[in-house]
């Protein structure tokens, strides 16, 4: 692989830069909030795997969770925090700049 084939990903946010966490951030960036089951089905992850990734996002302050009792069952809902929304925008901007840089070479 030549140098021009590679990107420097060190400038990207490590918390977001995982396929599942990125997917969760992308979905939550386009809605008010979403249930755990919706995220799981869209991302295609197992319950345990998704929980682990969401915990990382929550620890970083990017995602906040609420529990709601609906139809007799407790459902977890997630939304992006202001910090998470900002981090996602920055992440996307850097990805696009990286692509632009390669395109200019």
């Amino acid at each position: 692989m030549s140098d021009s084939d590679s990107f420097d990903y060190r400038s990207l946010d490590d918390v977001i830069h995982s396929r599942i966490r990125l997917a969760v951030m992308a979905i939550l960036a386009s809605v008010d909030d979403a249930e755990f089951t919706y995220l799981r089905d869209r991302v295609g992850a197992t319950d345990g795997n998704l929980s682990t990734h969401i915990s990382k996002l929550a620890d970083a302050g990017y995602v906040e969770a609420t529990k709601e009792l609906t139809n007799g069952r407790a459902a977890s809902r997630y939304r992006l925090t202001t910090e998470g929304r900002s981090a996602f925008r920055t992440y996307l901007g850097r990805m696009e700049r990286l692509l632009g840089g390669i395109g200019d070479e």
Binding site: D5, F7, Y9, A26, I27, S30, M95, E96, L98, L99
Partner: peptide
């Protein structure tokens, strides 16, 4: 990572959103 992979990631993010 290859440029094509980044393009795929961005397209995927856009489709999810």
């Amino acid at each position: 990572m290859h440029e094509s992979a980044v393009h795929e990631d961005l397209a995927w993010i856009r489709s999810l959103m």
